[in-house]
Design a protein around this nucleic acid. Sequence first.
DNA 1: TGCCTGCCATTAAGAGGGCTTATGCTTCGG
DNA 2: CCGAAGCATAAGCCCTCTTAATGGCAGGCA
Lengths: 317, 317
Amino acid sequence: MPVPSSPLKLPPLAAVRVFEAAARHQNFTRAADELGMTQAAVSYQIRLLEDRVGAALFVRQPRQVVLTPLGQRLAGPVTKALRDIGTVFGEICEENQTVLTISALQTVAITWLSPRLARFQVENPQFDVRVRTSQHLVDFATEAVDMAVRYGPGGWPGVTAEKLFDCHYAPLCTPELRERLGLREPADLLNAPLLSPGDTKWRTWFADLGIDSWSPAGRTTMTLDMQAMSIQAALQGHGVALAAPELFAYDIAAGRLTFAVGHAIRSDWAYWVVYPQERQRERKIRLFRDWILAEAEAARMTLARMAGSRGMTVPAP
Amino acid sequence: MPVPSSPLKLPPLAAVRVFEAAARHQNFTRAADELGMTQAAVSYQIRLLEDRVGAALFVRQPRQVVLTPLGQRLAGPVTKALRDIGTVFGEICEENQTVLTISALQTVAITWLSPRLARFQVENPQFDVRVRTSQHLVDFATEAVDMAVRYGPGGWPGVTAEKLFDCHYAPLCTPELRERLGLREPADLLNAPLLSPGDTKWRTWFADLGIDSWSPAGRTTMTLDMQAMSIQAALQGHGVALAAPELFAYDIAAGRLTFAVGHAIRSDWAYWVVYPQERQRERKIRLFRDWILAEAEAARMTLARMAGSRGMTVPAP
DNA sequence: TGCCTGCCATTAAGAGGGCTTATGCTTCGG
DNA sequence: CCGAAGCATAAGCCCTCTTAATGGCAGGCA
């Protein structure tokens, strides 16, 4: 805990501010112009400060005022201090308007957000977009984050959450692997090389088909923690990954990945864009919200086309 | 002429001040105590500042407030800037109360003021007395001087001038020299070694006695500009100096100098203590004024005794 | 010399803003 | 479950600061 340093005996700061301007101009009238007030007000404030200090700060000469030695000694430090304050406030105001910080899970950030973010950046060059990945639920109150992409059930308190897309899990692999293994029916996967077979979602996926006998025991390729890494392996043709196709719409649309078979399960959770509800009117918030919702919609459409052509079956959640 | 740098876009400084205290205490109520206002006022000002910045500076938690990252970035520079302002004002206030700067002609400063000043310093240790010698009439408006000892006719505009003593010119020398040369009558000086005989005051002194024939031509010891230097020579027994006995009352009282003969002339000018009339109520001004007037009075008394015992004649000015 | 202009001080009157008081809300602690 | 701690909010008052008008002073100019 920082020591609550000395109580700071300060002169009236309004007067200090007026003094600073007057000292800079060596002229009350021009200082008044700069500050948007009248010459009389400047005169009044300067006098106030002089009374406080107990000494004259300006010599009133017929056609001009000049600083006394005392005034000169004040002017430098005061100008510097006030400029420092102005600068630091200016910086954070500026930054607040131009910097847009997005928090997201690493998976989403890498697979979905960053490939699309470049376009947003190009379309909105006035913003400086920064992505921060984190595993925990970001707290807008205490962290310097403007918006977030969250994966969860929604209904968080104090924030506006708008759904980007529901989350499904489908078996994905390269078209080549699919062809080579002759995958057609969901049951064909029982003998296919599954990536991260220890993932309980595989069990769920099979169970959803009525295949309860499946067990990862004995079956092995590698076991990878993260969806993105499984997909990387799948992209190399090393096996079939169970992942959210929404996150890999680009790869699917480009033919680098395809649905191994026509079945997917749906997660209770979804992906959301989230921001403090009291900030929904801010320009940068609105802009990014609109953009990311449009992107999500586009991704969904793409996927719907691809899945439709493959006769996907998706049970209701 | 300094460039009237940028117009400094500043937030309301009153709010900044409140913010600084609140940030330091991490507590609105205690900040309010420190600032001598109510918690509601603090809350109000903080909100004002937050609206201005367009972002929260504090997170309101149930039993405490904590700075947001933005607030943290502000707090440091702001505290420093305000402390700088407080410091520089504090310094000059402090200095204004404790430093007493006296301006005087070099002659008076050396011969009269400094021998007495030590006592003032001892009696008033809370003051830091500084003497500045200068040849020109000091301008209280533009120079960092509190009071002055002036030699002149009085009647200066804008200042209070109180007479310390009238100024006379009397021939002074060591008692030894006086004895050796057998000086008794003013006319005896016609054949004595006069110091700075080129000084027109010697002509005036002789003329005052009705001796118009005196001329410095041919008579020479040295010619010295300054009264003090003539006196230094006189103290060495090198001759008779025409100087203001008031300035050398200590030397006369101590027997190091004496009136060579019993005649003096009086100058139109006098010595004054001078200070800006609007500052006459200030403690340090009053204190020094009272002290120096008392010293002058004491010096006059001493001289009167010495001169009386010598039967001095002093024509009216 | 006299007028005009630039610049600051002073005054009285008025308005606006910030402060205070009072009250409500929330949470923590016992 | 109640009290204490702590901040937010609303209403109203008072004080500060501003404004507007006027005066003074000195320099520039004719």
